[in-house]
Design a protein around this nucleic acid. Sequence first.
DNA 1: AAGCTAAGTTAGGTTGGCCTAAATCATATG
DNA 2: CATATGATTTAGGCCAACCTAACTTAGCTT
Lengths: 225, 225
Amino acid sequence: MTGRSLEEYTAPVEDYLKVIYEIERASGAAATTDIASRLAIAPASVSGMVRRLADQGLVDHERYHGVRLTDEGRRVALRMLRRHRVIEAYLTRALGYEWDRVHDEAERLEHAASDELIDRMEAAIGAPGVDPHGAPIPTREGQIDERELVSLAELEPRQMGRVVRVSDDDASRLRYLGELGLVPGARVTMLDRAPFGGPIRLRVRKAECAIGPQLAGSVWVEVAE
Amino acid sequence: MTGRSLEEYTAPVEDYLKVIYEIERASGAAATTDIASRLAIAPASVSGMVRRLADQGLVDHERYHGVRLTDEGRRVALRMLRRHRVIEAYLTRALGYEWDRVHDEAERLEHAASDELIDRMEAAIGAPGVDPHGAPIPTREGQIDERELVSLAELEPRQMGRVVRVSDDDASRLRYLGELGLVPGARVTMLDRAPFGGPIRLRVRKAECAIGPQLAGSVWVEVAE
DNA sequence: AAGCTAAGTTAGGTTGGCCTAAATCATATG
DNA sequence: CATATGATTTAGGCCAACCTAACTTAGCTT
């Protein structure tokens, strides 16, 4: 029994599972308030939903100590991540969308698209493996590249690297990163950093620029030795 | 004031308006039970929703005498029709879907797609003007070809015509029509018809076939004189 | 004109998913 | 170790959209 139930879940449930997956990757277990702030709803509402998710066997909940996805919950979360990222990739490659406009569209479509549509979209653009912001696309079978990356904020002076991924959830930030050339594939060299969260200077494609620590934290690189 | 409100409507509301539009085209006013059967819900539920639609100014309701769309209601309905048909056309032309598989996918996507996405899809396939089943696609501005068509069931013996449109809401019927060659563009000649709803014999692309009256009622033609 | 039937509506209930306000728990700190 | 603080849960509501059962209306038919 591989739990192949073709159960359908509501859009809110799918959204909860997706953010729980992301928080869990970063922090081990997903806390109520973290989920609430990511979904922009009240913490009390999360408590209620968490009970329903636990009843359905999608999460394990230890009272007052956050939730973790069950295998089934993770399966659903990865399917949503796959959908979201395939849609983003398709919109940019096949329909001419800019990379800062695809997130919201994908956020709605991911709940309506069938697995078949996702597979066809993926095939139509040559199964790129990553979305327009460099995030890995899980396979149909739920495999995903979970390599840990280093953010620009963690880079030491004189270290060089290649931008692999940027955070996709803020359109204006994406536009700014695009202007700076901080896009997946770009080579960067850390020049220097002010102490205690000050600005960071770097060289990006032969130009120099300075960015704040918050922005630096939403760009991840692969360090070249 | 052109009623440009960018209001959002729920998926159920959009579905109600769409079927009310279609029933109204055929019967003048949309009766509660007609709406209920098209949406596969109980008539009592329709009464409840109709009140809400009337409160929002989307329909005019005369108690015990059905509903009609207001201008705003018609605007929303035509936008949904446009979305549905552009999506169907896009799925067949850009993603290789068969014409009998697009309806359900479109039924879900039409509530999630932005106007911009619909416009881009339409442009990407060259703005065909009709969906894969021959139904006209409303323009962005809500213009639609509302020509009255003649169904095969109404054709007289020896009359000839060209198939313009077929009903899209049943996949198995579509597959059968496809096998017979009764697809938009096909030339047909009525041979003879049994009286009182008996089978109808016709010639379709040099072959002869007989179909029942119910099937004949879901194929519309343009009569050649 | 009475009465029958089908169509439509009302009444009352359920569920999911959200809310605010009021407890309760965990934990760090004085 | 007592307590303040922040995180979490409970209690109690609300709303959209559905349901069934019971009632009302419209529109014949006889």
